[in-house]
Design a protein around this nucleic acid. Structure first.
Length: 300
DNA sequence: CTCCAGGTTCCCG
DNA sequence: CGGGAACATGGA
């Protein structure tokens, strides 16, 4: 007997939207730079993933980017916003290039964009990220969706709702192998469901108030709060400071992010983070360059 | 076997 | 208050 597939297990992505290729949008640079954990690379230039309870495949070939969606309205309703396609990254990068170190970082990965994810998913994935590495974060997030998220077809699942997680005891999360972070996820869910953490308000509240709301959650410190605000709430002025950005700030910007990033510090952060993490010589080179500038100014 | 990983909490001086 | 160790898990 062959097993019968129910209709909802099948995945079809019949609705294509075609975009022109752009120097401001690289799929690997954007999807593999540690900001989102729900994308699988099918080949060099093809990815499939889920967000906002939808699945899509996105491929870059022959000067075009093809976004293949489940339903007719998905591109405009979900993916246009998710990939931040209405923001002019070319103009932003021109501003950033006023700073020499940023100019190098932008040149190194010019196709990075900052995704606009859902607040709850960003909160959870960055709770999971603490003292952890990207492959394992991806694994835990995948198991979390498979175990508790609504099926979307083809074995894909939505990210679980706060209600679904709030209803669980922490040991019910044991199969995720999230370790000590399991109870943090349940605490976060409980506070979201109770309204103590207002995910909508995080998008507009003054940054210090939004941070205070998030850090009330056990297991959420300043860094995870900043990631939630930047990647989940569209707060592009927000800079998560992890070990890599700590080094960048100490070495290059002890007085804070440079003026040319004003209002978009979080986006500038993404280029700097990527460069510091993947290019071992970047910080030394950039710091030397900074010293030369300072020396030059002193000699005037 | 030790070390480390987009941190945070807890505890001790 | 400031500095460390502990915290689960798994890959190098």
């Amino acid at each position: 007997m062959t097993p019968v597939m129910t209709e909802c297990d099948e995945l079809s992505l019949p609705y294509d939207t075609v975009l022109d290729e752009s120097p401001d949008f690289s799929l690997p640079q954007t999807l593999l730079c540690g900001q989102a954990f729900r994308w699988r690379q099918l080949d060099q230039n093809t990815f499939i993933g889920a967000a906002f309870e939808k699945v899509c495949q996105i491929a870059q070939t022959n000067g075009k980017i093809v976004v293949s969606c489940q339903s007719a309205g998905d591109f405009d309703a979900v993916w246009r916003g998710y990939f931040d396609l209405d923001r002019d990254y070319g103009a932003l990068k021109n501003r950033f290039r006023a700073d020499p170190a940023l100019a190098e970082a932008v040149a190194k990965a010019p196709g990075i964009r900052v995704l606009r994810q859902q607040p709850w998913e960003a909160l959870c994935t960055f709770i999971i990220s603490q003292n952890n590495n990207i492959p394992r974060i991806t694994g835990i997030v995948g198991r979390m969706c498979a175990a508790f998220g609504r099926p979307l077809g083809g074995g894909w699942h939505a990210f679980p709702t706060p209600e679904a997680i709030a209803a669980l005891a922490p040991d019910a999360l044991a199969p995720l192998r999230a370790g000590f972070r399991a109870r943090y996820l349940v605490d976060a869910a409980r506070r979201v469901v109770s309204g103590e953490v207002d995910l909508e308000a995080l998008g507009t509240l003054p940054l210090d108030e939004a941070q205070a709301m998030l850090t009330r959650i056990t297991g959420v410190g300043v860094k995870v709060a900043a990631c939630t605000l930047l990647y989940g709430c569209g707060r592009v002025e927000c800079v998560p400071v992890d070990v890599w950005m700590r080094r960048v700030l100490d070495r290059l910007y002890p007085g804070g992010m440079p003026a040319c990033t004003y209002g978009y510090e979080g986006i500038a952060q993404q280029y700097l983070f990527h460069c510091a993490r993947t290019d071992p010589g970047f910080l030394d080179r950039a710091a030397r360059g900074r010293h030369r500038l300072t020396y030059f100014e002193d000699s005037l």
